[in-house]
Design a protein around this nucleic acid. Structure first.
Lengths: 216, 216
DNA sequence: ACAACGATATGGACAGTGTCCATATATGCC
DNA sequence: GGCATATATGGACACTGTCCATATCGTTGT
């Protein structure tokens, strides 16, 4: 059963796929403790390896956490794709996308915070391939919706101005991100449900606050 | 000059106001390193005290960080108040408030992250008086603007429905928070300026995306 | 004024941590 | 087969958070 072996680099090694095992162990710890201040050694204990094993796959502890965040973005991407698949109306898709995003963030707050914090905070250069990539693919879901809405005339966005579309994408992303974070932070003093937030997205993002037929 | 001493509890002590000194030292470290992973002992070194001194004022390291976050919210509150003072038109005030918020967040990203992370993440009970208080006072600035806009008819919000107003406040806060974070996270692939964001707030929050005179 | 007391700071100690180094062991290629 | 290299292990060290006992100062009651 010897593999001809072209040194792909990303396959089971001596001890199995330890890199993946470590990331999974860390993901489990984040989910359990809702925190990522656990020690690197705790991860190795859970994975059943020596306390020095990670250094063959990660530069240091932060590097491992970045990889964990990357895994989180992959999940987000898949979740968003699944949520909007089959929905053709841009406004419906936008709401479904926002709902799915918030849903996932609230399901594992610590992981979401981890994704937003350390991983993205560091200079963009040092991020492993998967992280930036998955994050951009997640955003691509939203981009596609905005683009379709601009072309169909459902959104008040010029279909021929990519920069304007990019700004709207940025804004829409910020809205759901902000909603998620504000809720995570317990910033909603009043009881606010997921449906309330979707309604607020509809109201605030689609319709705006300025009266349609002003009384002036 | 002896004070009659009614044990107010919040005045210079034996060694001066060490509690405040420690918070200031930590604030300085956060600003310098743009990170809060430094050790408690490093703070004590900078403050010139023993490595055990903090334990007379804080339960543990996290407790100190929470106090640092509280100090950050006080700054934010003051900054917002200063930014909107004297602006009467609700829509102008809203934009000025958002601009000031983002401005401050971008000036010290690490502090802003700290405020949003550990401090607010923990259960609301354990937070020191100042934190929640200052955060609510900061939000009160926004609440006031929304309330005025609702009453004057500048915003499409019922002036008699506090819950509706609360939701709009929540949404508006989320928007600026999300914009700040998205920018901090380097999420804007295209070059986006502060003015761009204010314009996007105006467009997205006030006017909305749905065409006014739809072509349907 | 003075003594007793509580609050505040200090130094010592200990387990746990991150990371370097040298060493062992498996894997892939010839 | 044998060798280079990637992968895992154990030892070591400085550093950290936090507990404990001790020293010092401020306040309060009398």
């Amino acid at each position: 059963m010897k593999r001809t072996g072209k040194a792909r680099g990303v396959r089971p090694y001596h001890h199995g796929d330890l890199r993946r095992s470590l990331i999974d162990a860390a993901l489990a710890l984040v989910a359990e403790k809702q925190d990522w201040t656990f020690s690197l050694r705790e991860i190795t204990r859970r994975a059943g390896v020596s306390h020095n094993a990670p250094y063959n796959h990660f530069a240091d502890g932060d590097d491992l956490l970045i990889a964990v965040a990357a895994a989180g973005f992959e999940r987000l991407r898949d979740h968003l794709r699944a949520a909007v698949s089959g929905i053709t109306a841009p406004d419906k898709a936008l709401l479904a996308c926002g709902r799915a995003y918030i849903e996932l963030a609230l399901k594992n707050p610590a992981l979401y915070r981890l994704m937003c914090g350390p991983a993205l905070a560091k200079s963009t250069g040092s991020r492993p391939a998967g992280a930036r990539e998955a994050a951009e693919e997640a955003r691509a879901v939203l981009e596609e919706i905005i683009r379709r809405g601009a072309q169909s005339g459902a959104f008040a966005v010029s279909p021929d101005d990519p920069l304007e579309q990019a700004k709207v994408v940025f804004f829409a992303w910020s809205v759901v991100h902000g909603l998620s974070m504000a809720l995570l932070d317990g910033f909603a003093e009043t009881e606010i449900t997921l449906d309330d937030m979707v309604k607020e997205i509809e109201r605030g993002l689609l319709k705006g606050l300025t009266p349609r037929k002003s009384s002036r």
